[in-house]
Design a binder for these strands. Structure first.
Length: 839
RNA sequence: GCGCGUGUAGCUCAGUUGGUUAGAGCGUCACAUUGACAUUGUGAAGGUCCCAGGUUCAACUCCUGGCACGCGCACCA
């Protein structure tokens, strides 16, 4: 052990070097791991968006995945954690479009090929940023298997998948109403639309009844769409309008006669209870039109301008049209009323532009057929979701699933492998021949992500990796992409490979700011993990993202929390510094020489066992907290102090080594650093590949644990001594037990002095012989703080009464399990003895 | 509308099959301090586990019904 171990842990100087050493060792790659590894453990890393930067959401996920990976690697599993990035169609294209706008260009001027070149350039320049940040968080994933969704092999997988689904008639092309983003000039799936409260107006329009001077009033937030109205609908139960059903109104401006129809879906209480029906530009109206066989008139084009069908308004933008139409209606006295109104406006998830529903020819997946087996995979238990309540949400969504629109009018992405020639359509990777042209559209990003667990392992080829690592063991991600991604992976994998993509889904919560709100970059309420890792160390961030959290449950993060875990890491650093400076050397078989030794060894075994069980059960917070408590408040605070009286190097080393192993998955950097200073930097001796500690029965000693705990309680109780007696006690202990070593002092004086007793009592044996703690009666005489003692007596008496009552209850003694009753009886006995001593 | 979550110490949160006198961190207060560590140590104060019923020998935990806050889904024009 080198003496120059720094006084405080300095993560900045260490982390980069440690990560490089790990990466260089090759151990992230399961092929390079030592020993025979039969059991396989694999995780697919959710591909980060290439345009992205690491945020705390990633950090939580990576930490949990890394804990699992490191734990299983140490367990001796053939462990693979496969990383990658996603081309993120819309996000990336939007970003590059903005860039070229600044140059006065747009993608159409540039042309498809040149534009794509620009995107690739951009990807090359910034795409590695996120992977660098992934390294910074300590992710021990296999970079040699890193993939990008637009790699040649993955593109091939996408094409094969599409063609197979097309041939099986699971993918079809149809003219349907879709969510259209005018800015992106592309169709979107339902999931890519977000609703946001927006203040707007509700206009009440008068539609004259045909052949009458009366009119019906309809309310709308979108007056311009009236040009495309093909009916007015009312609820069949609405008495007010009963008499009009079957009649017609004259659509203003267009002077078109349109029917008044009855439909259950109309809400009587909204507006006037009469609705204008615009099938081409509203999802509900479209459905109503289908059922009532109404005409569909497309008046808004993909360019967000009115079509020829809009007559005199042809060519106007939607905004202009709204203005002119309102003006015209007002002039004709057909505008009844205008009120302020807040409604949920549908917006493009990526660019925020209001969505324009319109009729368009797009590609769809007939997803209901895929949903059935995907539901079964979860009900049958083949896939387990943690926490379980998300299964319900999953089922609800899957049971109500609608066809998935997968074509995007974007350039950045996988171009649809379909070719046209005259009226012929052919799905094929390559051009089928002269005169064929390929569909210009690309696929939804989530189509390729849906194949992620197997496309990254070489599918559709039957590679060794695929055979070895698929299905993967766990999918770890945040709950908000359960539908986007997790559900689609399950459907795609079952269909294409016949296997589930993973056996367990672990969902973590979202990281919230101090106020409990979603972190927002624009509001500046976010915590950027990278500067935090520099300030407090990555290990501290990792702990603060995992300890004290619960799966699927959102949680708040703030700086003090991180600082707290930084302190803990520093504690471990100093514990190691102390132990290694006391006696360097190899770890020997531990031999217990006194009660404290027995206690700590037994506790270590208990902790090892429990921590292992927690990790196996995905209870990361519990496992981490347990290690934290043991390391700090048992090993450091008590055992280490005890050894200041009588050192037992073998045990100090053994416990430190074991606890460092247990802590490694949670705080890899500091543990690896301590390890390397102790065991050297040789590759084969790295902590990352050390075997996970096992539970050794020989050290388990519940009796010792119990007795030491009593002793601790007694020592803590000694604080109630009067000051002068305390001094007397200290002096006595000092003179009696330390003799010539009386000079040894510690900050933690009280404990050290009191612990001197452990040694003298010849530990357990004597404790037993003298009747548990009776050997300590010697000190009890010094208890003199009457007030405190009185209070304690009161407390104990109360408790005794409680216990006596309980035991007197026949129902309890008869019906409760025997162990519980026995436990209560023992408690009563203990308390009575305690009381006796105090009186 | 349908569904989900949360409510435990001043603050942030744990609490997996119902069973020690309900826990931790931070904060507060008191005390300690020379050699592992002030990024320290020891302790104290602080709780009708949201409310009301029910099941049970036993409920923070299970059931029913409220209240408050947050979120998701949905055809809110």
């Amino acid at each position: 052990m080198k003496k120059e171990l720094e006084k405080a842990y300095q993560p900045q100087n260490i982390e980069k070097r440690i990560y490089q050493a790990w990466e260089k060792s090759g151990y992230f790659n399961p092929n390079n791991l030592p020993g025979k590894r039969k059991k396989v453990f694999s995780i697919s890393m959710p591909p980060s968006n290439v345009t992205g930067e690491l945020h705390l959401g990633h950090a939580v996920g990576f930490t949990v995945q890394d804990i699992l990976t490191r734990y299983h690697r140490m367990l001796g599993d053939k462990t693979l954690w496969l990383p990658g990035t996603d081309h993120a169609g819309i996000s990336t294209q939007v970003m590059v479009e903005r860039l070229i706008t600044k140059e006065g260009l747009d993608r159409h001027k540039l042309g498809r090929d040149k534009f794509l070149q620009r995107v690739w350039q951009w990807k090359k320049k910034y795409g590695s940023r996120i992977t660098e940040q992934t390294r910074q968080i300590g992710a021990s994933c296999d970079w040699s298997r890193e993939h990008f969704t637009m790699d040649a092999t993955l593109t091939k997988a996408v094409q094969e998948a599409f063609i197979k689904m097309f041939k099986d008639k699971l993918i079809y092309r149809g003219q349907r109403i879709v969510n259209w983003c005018p800015r992106c000039a592309s169709a979107l799936s339902d999931l890519e639309v977000k609703h946001q409260e927006t203040s707007s107006k509700l206009w009440y329009l008068r539609y004259p009844l045909f052949g009458s001077t009366k009119y019906l009033v309809v309310a709308t937030t979108r007056p311009e769409t009236m040009l495309g109205d093909t009916a007015v609908a009312v609820n069949p139960n609405d008495k007010r309008y009963e008499k009009y059903i079957g009649k017609t109104v004259l659509l203003p401006i267009m002077n078109r006669e349109i029917p008044i129809i009855a439909d259950r879906r109309v809400d009587q209480s909204f507006g006037t209870g009469a609705v204008k029906v615009t099938p081409a530009h509203d999802h509900l109206d479209y459905e109503i039109a289908q059922d009532h066989k109404l005409a569909i008139i497309n008046i808004i084009g993909p360019d967000n301008r009115l079509t020829k069908q809009a007559g005199e308004f042809y060519g106007q933008s939607v905004q202009e049209a709204r203005h002119s139409i309102l003006k015209r209606l007002e002039e004709d006295e057909l505008l009844d009323n205008t009120v302020d109104y807040i409604h949920n406006l549908a917006r493009c998830e990526r660019c925020g532009t209001p969505i324009e529903p319109l009729i368009s020819k797009q590609w769809f997946v007939d997803i209901k057929k895929l949903a059935k087996p995907a539901i079964k995979a979860v009900t049958s238990g083949k896939i387990k979701i943690i926490p379980q309540r998300y299964e319900k949400i999953y089922f609800h969504w899957m049971n109500n699933i609608k066809d998935w629109c997968i074509s995007r009018q974007l350039w950045w992405g996988h171009q649809i492998p379909v070719w046209y020639k005259d009226d012929k359509i052919k799905a094929s990777v390559d051009k089928p021949g002269e005169g064929w042209t390929q569909d210009p559209d690309t696929l939804d990003t989530w189509f390729s992500s849906g194949l992620w667990t197997f496309s990254t392992l070489g599918w559709p080829e039957k590679t060794k990796d695929f055979k070895t690592f698929h299905p993967t063991s766990v999918m770890e991600t945040s709950w908000d992409i359960l539908f986007f991604w997790v559900a689609r992976m399950i459907m795609m994998s079952l269909y294409h490979t016949g296997q589930v993509p993973f056996k367990t889904v672990y969902l973590h919560g979202l990281v919230l700011d101090r106020q409990g709100k979603k972190m927002s970059k624009s509001k500046g309420t976010g915590v950027d993990p990278i500067p935090m890792t520099e300030k407090y160390g990555t290990d501290a961030i990792r702990l603060s993202l995992v300890l004290g959290t619960s799966p699927g449950q959102d949680f708040r993060l703030y700086e003090e929390k991180i600082a707290g875990y930084r302190n803990f890491i520093n504690k471990l650093w100093n514990v190691s510094r102390y132990i290694l400076s006391q006696a360097a050397g190899p770890v020997k078989e531990p031999t217990a020489k006194n009660l404290a030794d027995q206690w700590i060894l037994s506790r270590l075994q208990t902790v090892t066992k429990q921590a292992t069980e927690y990790l196996d059960g995905y209870q990361f917070s519990e496992a981490g907290t347990l290690i934290y408590e043991f390391l700090w408040h048992e090993f450091a605070d008590w055992y280490l102090e005890a050894t200041k009286i009588k050192q037992n190097t073998s045990i100090l080393h053994y416990v430190l080594e074991t606890v460092i192993k247990l802590a490694h998955p949670f705080m890899p950097f500091v543990t690896e650093e301590i390890w390397s200073r102790w065991h050297g930097t040789e590759k084969s001796k790295m902590l990352i590949i050390q075997p996970w500690p096992t539970y050794e029965k020989t050290f388990a000693d519940p009796e010792a644990e119990k007795e030491f705990t009593s002793l601790k309680d007694f020592i803590i109780g000694a604080r109630n001594f009067r000051a002068e007696h305390k001094i007397a006690l200290s002096e006595k202990i000092s003179a009696y037990f330390w003799g010539e070593r009386a000079g040894l002092v510690s900050k933690n004086l009280e404990i050290v002095k009191s612990l001197a007793r452990i040694e003298n009592l010849e530990n357990k044996k004597q404790l037993k012989a003298t009747g548990s703690l009776s050997g300590l009666d010697y000190f009890i005489d010094y208890r003199h703080d009457d007030k405190k003692i009185k209070k304690e007596i009161e407390k104990i008496s109360q408790y005794i009464q409680q216990l006596e009552q309980k035991l007197a209850n026949k129902n309890f003694t008869d019906k409760a399990p025997k162990e519980i009753v026995a436990k209560e009886q023992e408690k009563l006995k203990e308390q009575k003895e305690r009381l006796k001593k105090l009186l």
